[in-house]
């Protein structure tokens, strides 16, 4: 279906607690950020989907504000095949590494999607 207000569609789905993205019905591309046409093939056939929330840190930069604690900004590749900017909230900023496996969480007030680091046997902060 054609999405005429993709940002609204994104916010509505985010408010329901999912991590939304679009899937092109013509070429199969995972599309993020949400759009009115597919940037891979030009089709307007984009269906909403949501991610299982698992991904891998592709890059990380730690910001050091003068008057606040450091925090990481990351690019995460979701397993469904799209990349988002986000942050990691459960480990000290300087411990986030490229290649870390991470899980998404929707923060209702942001609204935004943040990540926690997966350890070998599941969730939890890395020592």
């Amino acid at each position: 279906m054609t999405e005429l207000a993709p940002h609204r569609g994104y916010l509505d789905r985010l408010a329901e607690g999912t991590v939304p993205f679009q899937r092109c019905t013509a070429c199969g591309a995972a599309v993020f950020y949400p759009r009115a046409l597919c940037p891979a093939c030009g089709s307007t056939g984009l269906d909403w989907s949501h991610s299982a929330g698992l991904g891998t840190v592709h890059s990380v930069s730690v910001l050091f504000p003068r008057d606040a604690p450091p925090y990481p900004v990351v690019l995460v590749d979701l397993d469904e095949g799209f990349r988002v900017m986000s942050t990691v909230v459960d480990v000290p900023a300087e411990q986030v590494r490229i290649g870390d496996r991470v899980r998404a969480h929707v923060e209702p007030d942001g609204p935004r999607v943040v990540f926690t680091v997966l350890t070998g046997d599941g969730e939890g902060s890395r020592a």
């Binding site: 940002h7 993020f32 950020y33 910001l63 925090y71 900004v73 988002v84 900017m85 986000s86 935004r112």
Partner: peptide
């Protein structure tokens, strides 16, 4: 335009 980055406070 809508931003899908600003919420994470990149500088």
């Amino acid at each position: 335009l809508p931003s899908y980055e600003a919420a994470y406070r990149p500088r």
